[in-house]
Design a binder for these strands. Structure first.
Lengths: 118, 118
DNA sequence: TAGATATTTAACCAGATGGTTAAATATAGT
DNA sequence: ACTATATTTAACCATCTGGTTAAATATCTA
């Protein structure tokens, strides 16, 4: 068993739950970018993107450095490591999904038989 | 590159962002459970747990079968597979984090030198 | 049929989220 | 000093979220 910080997982998964933020991370994965560059491909205002970046920052998924008026963002994937570990705990369950389906169908049939029909 | 359904990832990550729901999944991983059993260890009302279960269900993370008045829940981890794949795309970034830190420090020093101090 | 049990639905509430526009702040360039 | 650029902050709004309590629904048991 791995030890997880609940708050960290909350923030990490919540940050990943938004498609704009996942795209921002993907862009960051291709190098540091300033806010304006990161915002350009998104059909939304700059303040909206700024907010998304702050969410990612609070989740520890990016670091910010200021060079004059320009804020340079850098991906920090470390929180994803914990998230990945958490998800991996369930790997055996999706890998065994066919066996599980068989059990499911068997049980269903029993239940149907018990009720007489449908 | 893997193909992801954005909606599925939205729902999966959002479902995982709540600690109550993560606990419910952990309990489900130990076998099927009815709503009352799942609710017992949680310090909240039954309708609250019922809502959480519906969120998990809509995210495809559990299947529900009714035996009379009892609803039996079963973990379905398949959506986690996609989530895991998405996260894994970033593995190289957290594994290379030390190299990245070195780059970071070097750049910082350059910037500091340029500005003269602090 | 009456009463207990399992679960959901409804109505409500406070606070978070994701967006907007307008204004403020900070820096850069002329 | 003025103007342009990069970014945030503020104020606002609609919708979602996570909880509550009370009532409805469905089923089981006596």
């Amino acid at each position: 068993m791995v030890k997880y910080s609940s708050r960290t997982l909350n923030r990490t998964f919540a940050a990943l739950a938004d498609p704009t933020r996942r795209l921002l991370l993907a862009h960051l994965a291709r190098g540091e970018r300033c806010v304006t560059d990161l915002a350009r491909p998104h059909a939304m205002s700059l303040p909206a993107v700024s907010k998304h970046l702050r969410v990612l920052e609070k989740a520890g998924l990016l670091r910010r450095r200021r060079y004059g008026r320009v804020h340079e963002m850098q991906l920090d994937a470390k929180p994803l490591k914990q998230a990945a570990k958490w998800v991996e705990e369930y790997r055996k369950f999706w890998e065994g999904s066919l066996d599980r389906l068989a059990v499911y169908l068997e049980k269903t049939n029993k239940a149907v038989a018990k009720k007489g029909n449908k």
